[in-house]
């Protein structure tokens, strides 16, 4: 993956996660999700800074110029309008497992930003993994919700894990088994984010994120 792809995955994920602030099921979880959002934002900034002016890149590009995978732009609980924490947990499980694998590979190849990010992504993965098991094997309702999220999100995992699918499955499948969740059988595998072809959701996300910055061109904040 290119630095821009890594940056955009992390930036868009941070934007989605930060929507949860003040809305999580517990106060502890509010702190945890904000923390993960901050980590994602931190990595995004480092990669963007390695490419140029971070704000010009974050606020100046249109949706078609973003190179994130489609998974990260999908609305989470708050922007879906239902505050479904289970959906966010499955999303985070997918994302953090993939990020941990990629950062580990890149760190081994001498990428210093990735080296810093590996530790954070293992924490994110642990967090997502523990919650996946709790929800999958918790109550009947939580099991149904987690399975529904898994079914809906699974197709988007293909683009996320391009080139690392086997390794990713070897992390995720045992977690799903422990959580008594079934691996979906669908073979649908939407993609295009890496070429700038996104879902309808990204341009709304960017409209919100970029509105103020674009209303005042050229000033300092």
């Amino acid at each position: 993956m290119t630095p821009l792809e890594l940056a955009d995955d992390a930036l868009v994920a941070a934007q989605r996660l930060s929507e949860w602030v003040s809305r999580a099921p517990t106060l502890e979880e509010d702190v945890a999700l904000a923390n993960i959002a901050l980590d994602q934002l931190g990595v995004a900034r480092l990669y963007l800074q390695s490419l140029g002016d971070e704000d010009a890149l974050a606020y100046g590009r249109s949706d078609a110029e973003f190179r994130n995978c489609q998974l990260v732009e999908l609305p989470l609980g708050p922007s879906r309008g239902d505050l479904d924490f289970g959906w966010t947990i499955v999303w985070l499980l997918f994302l953090s497992a993939a990020q941990k694998i990629r950062y580990t590979q890149l760190a081994a190849a001498g990428d210093e930003i990735a080296a810093k990010a590996v530790k954070e992504s293992s924490y994110h993965l642990d967090h997502a993994l523990e919650w996946t098991v709790r929800l999958g094997d918790g109550t009947e309702e939580s099991h149904l919700r987690a399975q529904a999220a898994l079914d809906e999100l699974w197709p988007y995992s293909h683009e996320l894990t391009e080139g690392i699918r086997e390794e990713w499955l070897s992390v995720v499948e045992p977690v799903l088994a422990k959580a008594t969740l079934a691996v979906p059988s669908t073979t649908w595998a939407p993609s295009g984010g890496r070429n700038g072809q996104h879902t309808e959701h990204l341009s709304y996300l960017l409209a919100e994120m970029q509105s103020l910055h674009r209303a005042h061109p050229g000033v300092m904040w």
Binding site: A24, P25, T26, E29, D82, L83, D84, F85, G86, R134, L135, G138, T139, E141, S142, R145
Partner: peptide
């Protein structure tokens, strides 16, 4: 809306 999560 977080009640089911805490119960789980």
């Amino acid at each position: 809306e977080g009640a089911w999560v805490r119960e789980a």
